[in-house]
């Protein structure tokens, strides 16, 4: 008897092309569809792209040098009614003194320029710190989940201990004691966020390890480390990748929070948390604009990353 006859006439084969259509559909990127259909997710994606764009080009497109004090000290932003006229002026004439859209601070720095230049600092810290913790955490998590020995046991105990540390205070210690600069903040945040990724990856590896395809990969004749890195790892990174989006958001908050309490980057670096901190001294006197605009920037950016993280998580489930 031939194998053809075994499958003919079964319901499975009523429409042999049905399944192939699904294969084709997969080739369209799901994110595009999601972007069109879900407003919150679309908002998040726009925020992600805009924040990365500003990280690269923010300082260059700022109309006024963000670290250069102008003569205008504590200037309020122009009333909204004047904005169209001012915009028209900026576009048509070559103004010697461009308007301070968001006003100036008590040192005469232009807040609009500083707000769009800040992602250079905030975003590079957040993105690189998240990347460091993702890579280190995933590899350590894979090892800890896949191999059970004294070293991975020590690794997990250490990771547990690190999670018992208060994140904010640990980050403060790491940054303040190693020097308040961008590289050290990246290192510090990378370190405090690594245990999350170790945990996530390890948990996923532990559950993937019991799956049949791992056993099958072994039975086919793969070496153990090939099974770990080629089969288990790619199937275990998705939760971590999703977590990355959320972690980037938290890293932005932490970066700003450190500057706010005086343990982050030094002035006059344009940085959102620092700007809010400087404005906080004057806000009770009614100079609200110094803190409001960078705060809105943080609020929207972190929310954007959170919606992307949430959207991806929902799809994954």
């Amino acid at each position: 008897m031939t194998t053809d006859s075994t499958s003919s006439g079964t319901p499975e084969d009523i429409n042999p092309h049905l399944e192939l259509d699904i294969t084709k559909k997969r080739r369209q990127i799901d994110i595009v569809k999601k972007f069109r259909e879900e407003k919150l997710f679309a908002f998040g994606i726009i925020v992600v792209f805009l924040s990365i764009f500003l990280a690269f080009f923010g300082p260059s497109i700022a109309p006024i040098d963000p670290t250069l004090a102008t003569g205008d000290v504590s200037f309020p932003p122009p009333p909204l009614a004047d904005w169209p006229g001012l915009l028209w002026q900026v576009m048509t004439t070559d103004m010697e003194n461009p308007p301070h859209w968001f006003g100036t601070d008590s040192s005469g720095l232009d807040i609009f320029s500083r707000t769009i230049a800040a992602p250079r600092t905030d975003m590079s810290i957040a993105l690189l710190a998240a990347l460091v913790s993702l890579v280190v955490g995933t590899v350590l998590g894979l090892l800890a989940g896949y191999y059970k020995n004294i070293w991975t046991e020590i690794l997990m105990r250490t990771s547990d201990l690190m999670q018992a540390f208060p994140v904010f205070i640990t980050a403060m210690i790491l940054v303040a004691l190693s020097g308040r600069n961008t590289a050290n903040i990246i290192f510090a945040l990378g370190l405090v966020y690594t245990p999350i990724f170790i945990r996530l990856t390890r948990a996923e590896v532990l559950s993937q390890k019991t799956r049949g395809y791992v056993e099958a990969a072994r039975a086919v004749g793969n070496r153990e480390w090939v099974v770990a890195f080629r089969h288990v790892l790619p199937n275990s990174v998705v939760p971590s990748l999703i977590q990355t989006s959320t972690t980037i958001g938290f890293a932005i908050l932490l970066t700003a929070g450190l500057s706010f309490v005086g343990a982050g980057v030094r002035p006059p670096t344009p940085e959102w948390g620092l700007m809010i901190a400087q404005g906080s001294n004057n806000i009770v006197h009614g100079e609200w604009w110094e803190s409001v605009f960078p705060g809105i920037a943080i609020s929207l950016t972190v929310f954007g990353y959170a919606t992307v993280g949430h959207g991806l998580e929902e799809d994954y489930r």
Binding site: A256, G257, I276, I283, S291, G295, I298, V302, A306
Partner: peptide, 10 residues
């Protein structure tokens, strides 16, 4: 996902 210190200030 909000900066609590900024909201406090606001």
């Amino acid at each position: 996902s909000q900066p609590e210190f900024w909201w406090g200030l606001m």
